[in-house]
Design a binder for these strands. Structure first.
Length: 151
DNA sequence: GCCAACGTTGGC
DNA sequence: GCCAACGTTGGC
């Protein structure tokens, strides 16, 4: 059982969109970064939990807790020539991109990035590192516990 | 396989 | 809108 942090831009898909989704679940499609893909494809297991993080918005921060409800499978958006996630180099036989499905466990208060930064014990978190851009990052158990205590 | 140019991310 | 960081692309 591992812990993760998954970023989403609320203008694309917010915590409230998540709560309104059928079954409160969604495919985490559209990831086009190899490291993030590998986390999903190779390491995420059923029942793993993740912080749902709002990025690129007025108040970035953690907005909820989600869990992996379906292990990695080919990201269908890579095959759609009309879509913005189309990848001409991907084929059904050799898909390049994968995604897991996630289910909303609960919406939490919005825990702002500034508040995470204010916690000295969280200084090592990947999301807080300078230049961090990865949309999916592992969270270690101690950090997970500390943060859930703040929610 | 190197590396410069380019594009994207994302906080501020 | 700015800009630092960094992943990707493509010529060589």
């Amino acid at each position: 059982m591992r812990y993760w942090l998954m970023k989403s831009e609320p203008s694309e898909f917010s915590i409230d969109d998540f709560a309104d989704a059928p079954g409160k679940s969604t495919s985490w499609f559209g990831v086009r970064n190899y490291m993030a893909r590998n986390f999903m494809r190779d390491q995420m297991q059923l029942g793993d939990q993740a912080f749902f993080y709002h990025s690129s918005c007025a108040v970035p921060g953690i907005a909820g807790i989600v869990e992996i409800c379906k292990v990695a499978h080919p990201d269908l958006t890579q095959f759609d020539p009309e879509g913005k996630y189309f990848d001409p180099k991907a084929t059904a036989e050799k898909p390049r991109w994968f995604n897991v499905d996630v289910r909303l466990v609960k919406k939490t208060r919005l825990l702002p990035l500034s508040e995470l930064r204010a916690q000295p014990k969280l200084a090592g978190m990947q999301i807080l590192q300078r230049g961090n851009r990865l949309s999916i990052t592992p969270v270690d158990a101690a950090d997970w516990k500390l943060i859930t205590g703040l929610l």
